[in-house]
Amino acid sequence: MSAELYIKIDQNVKVNKKKVLLSDIASLHCTNHDIKKELSNCMVLTITGSESGIYAMTVLAVIELIHRKRPDITVVNEGESDFVIEYVAEEDRNIKKKEAKNKGYEYAKVVFVSLVAFIGSAFTIMTFNLDVSVGDLFDNIYRWFTGVEKSGAPTILEFSYCIGIAVGIVVFFNHFSRKKLTVDPTPIHVEMRNYEKQVNQALIEDASREGKTIDVS
């Protein structure tokens, strides 16, 4: 009876070694432990050259490699059909470590992006208020409710609008500071993952267009 090997590979796999084994890129499951052990040491890719690089590969190539070793087993793919292997060279890793140690540089970047976010949001809400004439509208609403013209000084209406803006953003982002309102990830978090997925997809499609994908021949 032929055993079944289940493999699952993520869309983006980071490796540090030049000799990439099956167990480095995939999670494996097989009812027969010996087969699993034997195949986890199956060589998937040998990286030539010492620079960091990105290699696109199809799962068919992986299945072919497995079948070359054990033609009798059935491979069941539970993961992506195309994926990228990102090789990070030793020196690049050291640079990254150095950069990670250099917290000042990182904080400077965070401060920069935060400033863009802070002042940009302030700018956005002000342009919105001006663009749709929130002030004029508030004058009208004040007149409806009180029958008198607004004297110019801000009233309870403006005050509650300011509170409402803050409440709206906090509810939308689902957290304030470290305190999360619910367990869901925040919208920026979701967008971040979406963006990473699109980048991987573009890398895979680029490689396939240039014929650089590692596939069955």
Partner: peptide
């Protein structure tokens, strides 16, 4: 960054109004 957006929106609005 999310905090910066929250604070920027809220404070910018208060400054404007």
């Amino acid at each position: 960054y999310e905090n910066a957006v929250i604070l920027g929106g809220a404070i910018g609005n208060i400054l404007f109004i």
